[in-house]
Amino acid sequence: MNRYTKKTFVLEIFGILLAIVFLIPFYFVIINSLKSFAEILIDGAAWPKEFLFSNYLKVWEIINFPRAFWNSLIITVLSNIGLVVISSMAAWKLVRTPSKLSKIIFIFFIAAMVIPFQTVMIPLMKIGGILNLTNSIPGLVIMYFGFGVPLSLFLYHGFVKTVPIEIEESARIDGCSQFGVFWRIVFPLLKPITVTVVILNTLWIWNDYLLPLLVLQEKELRTIPLATSSFFAQYTKQWDMGLAALMLGITPVIIFFLFLQKHIIKGIASGSIK
């Protein structure tokens, strides 16, 4: 249907040039993160005279990168597990119990997607104080449960409708409890949408800045975005170390993306109703 013509070749060249333009910012960050401060000031575009890895070593210590990485990881993993468990269970039950109540609850979740984070954040900090959720990683994870549940539940709700009910019914007759039916039979069938839910929530929670900023004050609890921003606040315009900090900050998520890009792009496209 589509032959490779001269016109396609021209388009191809154009596409590659555009891609290079898209990548230029990364080129600047990488080469300059390996230079001394003086060398950056002389010429920001030039190739480094020699590769200086000392910037990375210094930043690694200053922002305590292993700690920040671990905090980001544990927050993302725990929030994902919780969101998958609570929203898949709720979505399944809501679909399988067709009643007015189920419908109202579902609409209640969806309607709240309209509420922007900024409208909730100020009183939430008061509630967080009362319930002892502030300055603690489990507390932040619980908040992510609350913020993530509408979209996750919405995606599961749509998917459960496509799962045939017959398998569940026969398992019920064989005496399986509802929990048994759900975890042993239904949940494995939900795998494709679970992948989408986990990818969307991971990209959101890993990169999130404002909620951790409000909840986590202690230095030891900082996530990667928090550690990077407090580094920039302290070392303004010290680009040699600043760029190394940025490289450290973006590398994990870029590796995550390159490994799972097919799933991620598919998940992003199907989750775009948000």
Binding site: S87, M121, F182
Partner: peptide, 23 residues
């Protein structure tokens, strides 16, 4: 029903709905 739907509803109400009305 409560065991399946309750946790999602609880977190959602405490974290988003109550703060919204407090706001």
């Amino acid at each position: 029903y409560a065991a399946f739907v309750g946790p999602a509803l609880l977190f959602f109400i405490v974290i988003q709905i109550i703060p919204f009305f407090m706001g």
